[in-house]
């Protein structure tokens, strides 16, 4: 169990024994972009990838943007500020008959 505590700018320094690295997940849901200033720690690159991918459908459940082809993007920064991973989730929605959206309304 972690002993870190939430603080205004983030969390307390990680324990000295930790081999984890801190990563920051900037997520643009299509409705709202938020730059991560807290960050989360991961021991292995594959865990970073898994976390970035998992958060997209989690957020999509709560805030799905308007439009027929919305895209949700997560970009992951490492502790030095370099972007190291990106994932996106998109929806393609379309009517299958010829009636326009204006006529439908």
């Amino acid at each position: 169990m972690s002993e870190r505590v939430l603080t205004p700018g983030g969390v307390d320094a990680r324990p000295a024994w930790s081999m984890c690295m801190r990563y920051y997940f900037d997520i643009d849901s299509g409705q709202r972009a938020i730059r991560d200033q807290i960050g989360s720690e991961f021991a292995r690159p594959e865990d970073v990838r898994a976390a970035a991918i998992r958060v997209l459908p989690d957020i999509a459940r709560d805030e799905w943007p308007d439009g027929d082809c919305p895209v949700m993007i997560v970009k992951v920064r490492d502790h030095k500020g370099s972007y190291v991973f990106q994932a996106s989730l998109s929806l393609v929605a379309t009517w299958l008959n010829a009636v326009t959206d204006d006529e439908r309304r």
Binding site: S2, V11, D36
Partner: peptide
């Protein structure tokens, strides 16, 4: 005095998601 991990495990979401919602 709760960690991100504790909040995440309480709300049933990931720590990355907790961070986004907090911010």
């Amino acid at each position: 005095p709760l960690t991100q991990e504790a909040l995440a495990d309480t709300l049933g979401i990931s720590t990355v998601h907790v961070n986004r919602v907090l911010q």
